[in-house]
């Protein structure tokens, strides 16, 4: 289980979440159009979710149906499969 960033983040990349993550597990370079949470590093504390101005962050089991594909995308970004 980890937190997952979904579609609202695309082209927004506000990065408020990055500043509050105590384990530095939210990544994304200038070439990416959104940010991603590394499921191996995330400790599931949820500190990031309320900070997101576009409400893009969800616990993995609560990702809204229309954005379920972002679970796989978050894992894939770090070379993992779900």
């Amino acid at each position: 289980m980890a937190y997952i960033i979904a579609e609202p983040c695309v082209d927004v990349k506000d990065a408020s979440c990055v500043a509050v993550c105590p384990v530095d597990c939210i990544h994304g370079g200038p070439e990416d159009n959104m940010l991603y949470i590394n499921p191996d590093e995330c400790i599931d504390c949820g500190a990031c979710a309320p900070e997101c101005p576009v409400s893009a962050i969800f616990p993995e089991d609560q990702v809204p149906e229309q954005w379920r594909e972002y679970i796989q995308m978050n894992y894939a970004y770090f070379g993992k499969t779900k």
């Binding site: 105590p22 384990v23 530095d24 597990c25 590394n38 191996d40 590093e41 400790i43």
Partner: peptide
């Protein structure tokens, strides 16, 4: 200190990547 502790948390769960990174 926090991340050293989180690294140990990942170790307890057998999460190799988590330990190495955090």
């Amino acid at each position: 200190i926090l991340q050293v502790g989180v690294g140990f948390h990942h170790l307890r769960k057998g999460n190799y990547n988590g330990v190495i990174k955090v």
